[in-house]
């Protein structure tokens, strides 16, 4: 039972609280932490739940990729020229042995797709975490310190943003050579700046809030204020931006691989698979080579984007409250009209 908040200094109740008062005090609305509130809202949002399920499914499949490969009996890079290719050398379509068909080298498309998911997700997560880390640090420092530090850092962000991404990526990769590491670094290089800008803007407004002033009046150092007072208030935009950045990173990785600048074949990535489908217009005879990797790419990026939107709504319901209210009212007037 919640304790009645009896207040030793100011309580003016003349007598001991009587039975009726005691009876009432048990009737408190259970207080919930911000996290609980967000979680409740997310659980009520069907879009969020469906998107989360899709993402969870892909993650589980990616983790279990070796198990699935063992179960199917096909390795990701193994070529089955006899079973996977027709006598004339063309890939076979979806059948009992090859669930999603085989590719032009007779490899199992299903197994490759799952291994591709693994790689795509790892690249996306690593790149996103890296970009968020750099972006937050730079943005927060710029916004909090203001002055010359801000000028230099903002200039750096603007320069990064004004670089032609693909062109720059191509020249960079041709200098260093394509690899997993290069792919991650290229993605981070082009993703941290927008985050830094968002974080900088937020920090500018947070640093003017009264609790920051309160911390200053207590004698807190800049570093402490940034760490303890500013950073926790940046979690919302960082989290939202993070979920929206993952699909961007997945697409970026696919683009690089498609152009042959990302992770090198024969390693299965969605971009490599799409590239294989387009070499020699393979997709005109083997549609499955194009459709399944594209569908995977589309559904995962869509799920991440929708989840990102839902997370933002759940974290800051005020932004969408009015839209929802209007919807409710419309429904009501419809009901009344009936």
């Amino acid at each position: 039972m919640p304790e009645p908040t009896v207040d030793p200094v100011v309580n003016e109740t003349p007598d001991e609280p009587n039975a009726a008062q005691v009876a009432r005090s048990g009737n408190e609305v259970a207080a919930r932490s911000p996290f609980q509130l967000v979680w409740t809202r997310l659980r009520r949002d069907p879009t969020a739940m469906v998107s989360a399920s899709v993402i969870l499914l892909v993650i589980i499949a990616a983790i279990a990729a070796p198990l699935i490969a063992a179960w199917v009996g096909h390795g990701p890079d193994e070529q089955f020229r006899k079973e996977g290719l027709t006598p004339s050398g063309l890939p076979t379509g979806p059948n009992e042995e090859f669930l999603l068909g085989a590719d032009n080298l007779g490899r199992d498309l299903f197994v490759r797709l799952i291994y591709g998911a693994q790689l795509s997700l790892i690249v996306a997560f690593v790149a996103t975490v890296g970009a968020l880390g750099i972006g937050t640090l730079v943005g927060m420092t710029a916004g909090f310190m203001r002055g010359k530090v801000d000028t230099v850092l903002t200039w750096l962000m603007d320069t990064t943003l004004s670089l032609p991404q693909l062109l720059f990526a191509i020249s960079l990769v041709s200098l260093v050579g394509p690899s997993f590491g290069t792919t991650v670094i290229v993605i981070i290089l082009f993703s941290w700046a927008p985050i830094a800008r968002v974080v900088r803007g937020q920090t500018l407004s947070i640093r003017e809030r009264e609790f920051v002033e309160a911390a200053r009046s207590l004698g807190a150092s800049n570093w402490r204020i940034m760490r303890v007072d500013v950073l926790p208030n940046l979690v919302v935009p960082i989290l939202v931006y993070g979920t929206l950045l993952i699909p961007q990173a997945i697409v970026f990785e696919a683009t690089l691989s498609f152009l042959g600048l990302g992770v090198l074949p024969p390693t299965a990535t969605w971009g490599n698979m799409l590239a294989a489908a387009s070499t020699g217009s393979m997709y005109t005879i083997a549609w499955w080579m194009l459709v399944f990797p594209s569908a995977a790419l589309l559904s995962v990026t869509l799920a991440f984007n929708l989840l990102g939107d839902s997370v933002r709504d759940a974290l800051d319901p005020r932004q969408t409250l009015f839209a929802k209210k209007r919807r409710v009212k419309k429904l009501k007037t419809k009901e009344i009209a009936k």
Partner: peptide, 8 residues
């Protein structure tokens, strides 16, 4: 409302 950090 403003003088207390909501996140802590």
């Amino acid at each position: 409302f403003g003088s207390l950090n909501q996140q802590r």
